[in-house]
């Protein structure tokens, strides 16, 4: 019996147990601090629905051995292009959401192909280069947002008539198109059903993909590339596919994020999107070359619980707003922890 408990604990990971304990402690403090637990839980549910897909976009690349996808900002740009072009073209309301998804797709494929091509050239150095490719893309797109010939007054600066705004409200477009769908309350906790279903749909798609022949090959490439090569797999092609898939999920992920959040954030906002997503999947128990859908779900919930609950509780207790600081320390601490673990290299 003792053995079994030990095994369960070992499998779940002591670090994660500590985090779960910490979150429970925060929830226990919530009534003392005057926060309603149901509000806190609603918050977590909501944030999960916004961020789930961005975290899920890590999975294909981890499976194919491309490591943690620090290049997420690049992929987000594809989604942003989809949204801005859809609005520019005059789509409104919920149509704009579908239009954004559709328009973002070719961009995601294009960006993913280029990005995948690059990553195939630099196997082994993916993570660092991905970080800077992401940053370069964001800074290049900053110029793009100023220079591109957008005209729609909703998204363009009012006084100059050119250059996109930094924040675009989507109140009149697709705000809560998913989160609002079939929304219900359970013991005072608001569940954004539509958005969760959307996440579930894509997650199921990935799960199913990983059960097909090609998906199996992808996992094998990440697990031991030499084995896969010896079994006749074209490693570069599989990696490329995984990058394109990741890019597409991230692109629709950001559009999903916006429908919950209510704003499209352009310019420098994507810089800071990678770290939370990477941290979340690691927190869920993924490693640099292994990740599953359950890692995504557990990780996103844990991560969002920490970064939304802790600041709320602490803020109410001692009147200190430290949400930013907590977010930075937790996300980078988790990534640092993962990077300094010994990974058994498949081949010296």
């Amino acid at each position: 019996m003792k053995e079994r408990i030990k095994n369960i604990i070992a499998e779940f990971g002591i670090s994660r147990l500590i985090i779960v304990g910490f979150i429970l402690f925060m929830f226990a403090l919530a009534p003392v601090s005057g926060n309603k637990i149901s509000t806190l839980l609603s918050n977590v549910a909501n944030r999960f629905a916004w961020n789930g897909l961005l975290v899920l976009s890590m999975v294909p690349m981890i499976h194919s051995g491309c490591g943690l996808n620090f290049g997420l900002p690049l992929e987000i740009e594809a989604g942003l292009l989809g949204v801005t072009i859809a609005i520019e073209m005059g789509f409104t309301g919920n149509e704009a959401f579908l239009a954004a998804l559709t328009i973002a797709t070719p961009f995601a494929i294009l960006f993913g192909t280029l990005y995948g091509f690059l990553l195939n050239k630099i196997k082994g150095g993916e993570m660092m280069i991905a970080t800077y490719v992401g940053f370069s893309a964001v800074s290049l797109m900053c110029i793009g947002w100023v220079m591109l010939p957008f005209k729609n007054p909703v998204i363009v600066w009012g006084y100059t008539g050119k250059g996109l705004r930094t924040m675009i409200s989507i109140e009149n477009y697709y705000y809560e198109v998913l989160s609002g769908f079939l929304r219900f309350k359970l013991f005072g906790v608001t569940i954004p059903t539509g958005a969760i279903l959307f996440f579930a749909l894509i997650a199921f798609g990935i799960w199913a993909f990983l059960h097909t022949k090609t998906g199996t090959a992808m996992t094998a490439v990440g697990s031991n590339p030499t084995f896969a090569k010896a079994a006749g797999i074209n490693i570069d092609r599989i990696r490329m596919l995984s990058v394109i898939l990741s890019t597409w999920i991230a692109a629709i992920g950001i559009i999903n994020y916006q429908q919950g959040f209510g704003y499209v954030q352009l310019y420098t906002a994507p810089y800071s999107m990678a770290m939370p997503a990477v941290a979340a999947i690691l927190l869920g128990g993924a490693s640099v070359n292994k990740a599953s859908i359950s890692n995504v779900i557990i990780g996103t919930i844990l991560y969002q619980a920490i970064v939304t609950t802790t600041p709320n509780v602490i803020n109410s207790l001692i009147n200190l707003d430290i949400s930013d600081v907590i977010r930075i320390i937790v996300s980078n601490g988790v990534i640092l922890f993962a990077l300094t673990r010994k990974i058994e290299e498949p081949k010296k």
């Binding site: 697990s223 030499t226 058994e344």
Partner: peptide, 11 residues
């Protein structure tokens, strides 16, 4: 090279 080429050790 069993461990390096021959097997998916983690599977």
């Amino acid at each position: 090279d069993r461990r390096g080429v021959g097997l998916l050790l983690d599977e």
